[in-house]
Design a binder for these strands. Sequence first.
DNA 1: CGCCAGGCGGGAC
DNA 2: GTCCCGCATGGC
Length: 283
Amino acid sequence: MIPDTGPFSLDRTLSCGQVFRWEKRGAWWQGVIGREVIRMRQEDRILIFSGAREDTIRDYFQLELDLEEILQSIDRDPVIHGSLERCRGLRIIRQQPWECLASYICATYANIPGIRKKIALLSSSFGEPLTTGSQTAFSFPSADILASSDMCDLARCSLGYRSPYLCETASMITRNPGWAEKIAAASTPEARKELVLFRGVGPKVADCVLLFAFGRYDVFPVDIWITRIMQHWYSLPASAGSEEIAREGRSRFGRYAGYAQEYLFCDREFLMSGIFSRRPKKR
DNA sequence: CGCCAGGCGGGAC
DNA sequence: GTCCCGCATGGC
């Protein structure tokens, strides 16, 4: 148990679409970190958990980071202010590099329920069973396992055209086991260059990995929703490309631009409800 | 049913 | 460098 997490919403943090493997049953969230099957629930600022050491949980949610301070630093205009209110307590999780990279390769041009399904299938097909009392959970499959699996098997996980990308990247990772340390040691621009060398990894996936697995809170991943939000609420021209939007996000919100991005993304339904203008949307 | 999804690779200029 | 297109599958 962690008696005082500070400002924190377990629900928003686990359901906002940064991680895809947690499930809520009743009051309890169930999921896996590494090889540990974890159950958690929250009561006010108390976090109750089982299955892992407290260190693991504290690191996963980066509880030593002062959320109030971060949010204060990005609370720079009325739009983000509203999103900060509506998504209060969302924290950016520190994910494991390979799981994060693989997950976001699977996430390209898919919707969140679909992504969750792909990753669940991938885990139950290739992960290791982790038995815990009643039900069986699975570890996220290692790069080695995926690299040595027949691509036809991978394709059965509804990955579509992404399966060769995941397979090739898994193989690249297997041949380059020090990749994560190298990225962790590199500057953000250098790290980004390294990441886009992997198959299926473009600027957006690279930024998600930098933000969610390497703690580069200044990056600003741009997907279709962030594009719409920035165009509509921050009057960026419809012609603005992803790099331009990312630049604008970083300069507008500063060192924790990635946090701003997550709050806007989490709030996308509110921000875009009633915006019916069928915008070009396809570039 | 049609339209859309936390984009990317590849080719055309 | 920028633009444009196809993409395989499932959710809604």
